[in-house]
Amino acid sequence: MAMAANETVRLRTVRRTYGTGDAAVTALDGVTTSFQTGTFSAVMGPSGSGKSTLLHCAAGLDRPTEGTVLIDGTDLGTLDETGLTLLRRERMGFVFQAFNLVSALTAEQNVSLPLRLAGRRFEPVEIRAALAEVGMADRARHRPSQMSGGEQQRVAIARALISGPSVVFADEPTGALDTTSSRGVLSLLRDLVTRQGQTVIMVTHDPMAAAYADRVLFLADGRIVGELRDEISAEAVASRMAGLETAC
């Protein structure tokens, strides 16, 4: 399965089933879609729609029961666990709701952690530049307990970007933040896409968060049931979500 030149991630007829026999649950039901390079995509759907499963399969955190996932032209299904780990380390960045910072480490130590784990040489100036990029240069020596939730998420984004990934996967990145902090983090992600051409795929339940994206993909019962593109508003997203939830 070839990828178009402007695609970073492609899924083809991806199915993910958990359990067997009468107890089997289909979380993804033959999903085919792609995510273009340098775009910000939001994935939404009612609870149990498969949105998190889609992200996990796209990122190689979970293996599809059937179908194909490509990242930068590499078929994830051809890789063993070591190969997947290396691909995630080199090509992907991750931002989670819970921040996942190491509490004993400073901001700069948390950001440099992926490089240390990969055995890559780096200069302190690189880490400071990454923190400056997310507005956290003055918090380099602070530990997570000394930072607000929004600040911790900015450090987590710097950590996700330090390896120069092809794609950043964000799973409910504003779920634990207040409105003001959420807007700051979303504006940062939006700016990374617009200014640096970063590719971001975000799972969210929040129409306000989705409104920062170039494209909103809607799932229901493990299938893609629609999308919005261009001039996306929180109101339009909320209306579409209300329709899906009523149908469920």
Rank of each mutant, 00 (worst) to 15 (best):
T39E: 06
V43G: 07
D62H: 04
S41L: 04
L61C: 07
F40Y: 08
G48V: 05
G48W: 14
L55E: 07
F40V: 04
H56W: 06
T53S: 14
A59P: 11
G38M: 06
G50P: 07
V43C: 05
S47Q: 12
G48Y: 06
L54Q: 13
T33G: 00
T53L: 02
G60H: 15
C57P: 14
K51C: 12
A42Q: 03
D62A: 14
P46Y: 11
G60Q: 02
A58P: 12
S47R: 09
A59K: 11
M44E: 10
M44K: 04
A42C: 12
K51W: 02
G60D: 12
M44Y: 06
F35I: 00
T39R: 11
C57I: 02
Q36K: 10
S41V: 11
A59G: 09
G48S: 10
A58S: 15
T33D: 06
T53N: 03
P46W: 12
T37W: 02
L55R: 04
F40R: 03
A59S: 15
T37A: 15
S34E: 13
C57K: 01
M44H: 08
S41M: 09
S34L: 02
G45T: 00
Q36Y: 07
S41G: 11
G45I: 01
M44W: 03
T53K: 00
S47H: 13
C57A: 14
V43R: 05
M44L: 05
T33H: 04
G60T: 13
L55F: 13
D62F: 01
A42I: 04
A58K: 03
M44A: 03
G45K: 01
K51S: 08
S49F: 08
T37P: 09
S49T: 12
A58I: 06
A59C: 11
D62K: 01
Q36S: 15
H56C: 07
S47V: 13
C57N: 11
F35T: 00
C57G: 01
H56P: 01
S41E: 03
G48E: 05
V43Y: 01
G60Y: 10
T37Y: 07
F40N: 01
S52I: 08
Q36N: 11
G38W: 10
V43N: 08
S52H: 09
K51F: 04
F35E: 00
L54G: 04
P46M: 07
D62R: 00
G45W: 00
S52C: 09
H56D: 14
G38Y: 01
C57Q: 08
L55S: 06
L54Y: 02
G45L: 04
M44G: 08
F35C: 00
M44T: 03
G48C: 09
S52K: 09
S41C: 14
L61Y: 14
C57S: 11
S47L: 13
S49H: 12
K51A: 08
P46K: 13
L55D: 06
M44V: 04
S41D: 05
G60R: 03
L54P: 02
T33V: 10
T37F: 04
F35Y: 07
P46V: 14
S47C: 09
M44N: 05
S34H: 12
P46H: 06
A59T: 06
T33C: 01
S47D: 12
K51D: 10
A59M: 05
Q36P: 10
K51P: 11
T39Q: 15
S34C: 09
T53M: 01
T39F: 00
